[in-house]
Design a binder for these strands. Structure first.
Lengths: 124, 124
DNA sequence: TTAATATTTTAGCAATTACTAAAACGTAAA
DNA sequence: TTTACGTTTTAGTAATTGCTAAAATATTAA
């Protein structure tokens, strides 16, 4: 860094405004970065899709479906839970995970369209 | 892996169906994983937001706004370009980057609402 | 109680990430 | 030409990721 590389033709007002915008939106940007980051992993996106499709699932079944060790699945689920995208419910010795609807609004449209595509393909 | 951990209570039909769904949607899942992955980084999400807000920007200005070295910005832009989320246009010695609209449909609603929130906050 | 099942946590690993500084590359101006 | 500017690429780094195997935890059944 340090060497300030500002173009001769740069518009200082535009740049200042952009910096202010980012500052003001900082919280929202961080929050959404986190949601996209959690969803931007093949295993986790599949988990989110499956929870959307099936309602709820347990680590063991997910492990079988995704072909990842149960421990690995559990770690993904913990991340998703830390990010408040999923919640869990214990029934006997098995734990059922499901989506936290209000916190996945950003990716919900995608999950829906994926499911629709899936159904369409099933028909044909 | 290897040790097949299938619950005694598991529904083999449900599991089989889920595996088939994932197989069928494989391409779409991969594609969207990549978009979310590209967007799930603080610097890149800010770049996408700024390109949406301003129309086009060059690496040098982005470097100043984001407080990241020009080289670092260039690397983010290359990733976004490889993922076809942005395109570039050379004018003299400066390169202007802008969004590829048809390829950011998944995250567009978010960018729009961010910008709306920004404008609302500006008023108050 | 003991044994089996389902999950979580831990330790360890190879691969990837995001960054910087510096070198290399183009383009424009003196 | 030489110099400056804007960008990209490279080399190197510390930190993070995603996975496994194994240990630890908790619940249920024998």
């Amino acid at each position: 860094m340090s060497k300030t590389c500002i173009r001769v033709l740069a518009d200082p007002i535009q740049i200042k405004e952009c910096k202010e915008s980012l500052n003001r939106l900082d919280d929202q940007l961080d929050q959404t970065t986190q949601i996209f980051n959690l969803s931007g992993n093949a295993a986790r996106l599949k988990i989110l899709f499956l929870l959307h499709k099936e309602g709820e699932m347990c680590p063991c079944d997910l492990s079988d479906i995704l072909d990842i060790s149960v421990g690995g699945v559990s770690q993904h689920l913990r991340k998703l839970k830390d990010g408040k995208l999923v919640k869990d419910k214990k029934v006997g010795q098995t734990v059922f995970y499901s989506l936290v609807d209000e916190n996945i609004q950003v990716i919900k449209p995608f999950l829906k369209s994926l499911l629709d595509n899936h159904k369409k393909e099933s028909v044909s």
